[in-house]
């Protein structure tokens, strides 16, 4: 089984160059049944990564390009009168797919954003009093530009909380970038990608991730991390228990991805910045961009017993 995961990582690495750790985190996020938020400047490969993951996992995926005039119905679908049968027919929107790529989510108005985010939370869509379950598995990979760009509606904290991880791609290193520049077009590369996993395999992997063993010592460590964030004055607000659960879930998937059946402090440390940075605010933070530094500070301050 870990062979399949390794292959996944290797294949992805062929398209997104020099970003193995980000790819691993993204895969871990999906193994942990979490939604993923990719935040970076335009043109570093956000959309490519989302596309790539959908292809590799062999999931049915649809892409929604978020714009400021996007309406909720454009996401979840709407009922249209059927003149032949004299009734309303529900036409499902793009959200009814196994993987939804929500591109530039912070370009849309909060109204449109919340339509997607509700679907993420409830795993179902309700239109005119009728609930329609979303397909399983259901992943959302959203991308967004940094919040301080003009013409964006930053996601509120409570909605950020629904993403298990927030990743940043960053610029590629020199070697990878040279390779990228000289190589084939990414879009045509994506076309050639074959799925590496069956649906059942994915479900099995998710089950295995859940079963990763948590020892009392690792729970202590996790709790100390949470407690530190609550007691230290540098943190505006401490991490919530939900953040703690998210941390453990991601770390378990990371452990599985690393071929382990038990959770090590290193696993928690590996996923911690991606998992908690978007949930943290510094006491004296106005830009909302200090989460990553805080996460690093948290990591370095809590001793592994």
């Amino acid at each position: 089984m870990s062979d399949a995961l390794e292959k996944l990582v290797v294949e992805a690495g062929k398209v997104i160059l020099g970003k193995e750790s980000v790819i691993r985190l993204a895969i871990a996020c999906l193994l942990a049944r979490g939604h993923l938020l990719i935040e970076d400047l335009p043109g570093v490969g956000k959309t490519t990564l989302a596309h790539l993951l959908a292809k590799l996992l062999g999931l049915h995926y649809q892409r929604i390009q978020f714009t400021s005039d996007l309406l909720p119905a454009d996401i979840i679908g709407n009922s249209i009168y059927n003149r032949n049968e004299g009734c309303f027919d529900f036409h499902p929107g793009p959200v009814f797919s196994q993987l939804v790529l929500a591109d530039e989510i912070n370009r849309a108005t909060p109204k449109a954003q919340s339509a997607l985010l509700e679907a993420m939370e409830e795993q179902q869509v309700t239109i005119e009093g009728k609930s329609y379950p979303l397909p399983q598995p259901f992943f959302v990979i959203a991308t967004q530009n940094p919040a301080h760009q003009i013409g964006t509606f930053p996601l509120p904290e409570s909605q950020l909380d629904r993403f298990l991880m927030r990743l940043e791609l960053g610029y590629p290193d020199a070697k990878s970038e040279r390779l990228l520049l000289s190589g084939e077009d990414r879009r045509s590369l994506l076309q050639q990608i074959e799925p590496c996993l069956e649906l059942q395999q994915l479900a099995e992997l998710q089950r295995q991730a859940d079963a990763v063993y948590l020892s009392p010592a690792i729970l202590d460590y996790c709790q100390q991390l949470l407690a530190f964030s609550r007691n230290n004055p540098r943190f505006h607000r401490g991490l919530s228990p939900r953040a703690g659960l998210a941390l453990l879930r991601s770390a378990k998937a990371w452990a599985l991805l690393s071929g382990r059946r038990q959770l090590l402090p290193e696993d928690l440390q590996a996923v911690l910045p991606a998992t908690v940075a978007h949930r943290l605010h510094a006491s004296a933070d106005t830009s909302g961009s200090e989460g990553a530094q805080l996460a690093q500070y948290l990591l370095e301050s809590v001793a592994v017993a």
């Binding site: 290193e266 440390q269 370095e300 001793a303 592994v304």
Partner: peptide, 9 residues
């Protein structure tokens, strides 16, 4: 060992 360093690392 740095206090925050895990055993495997």
């Amino acid at each position: 060992r740095v206090p925050s360093e895990g055993p495997k690392a």
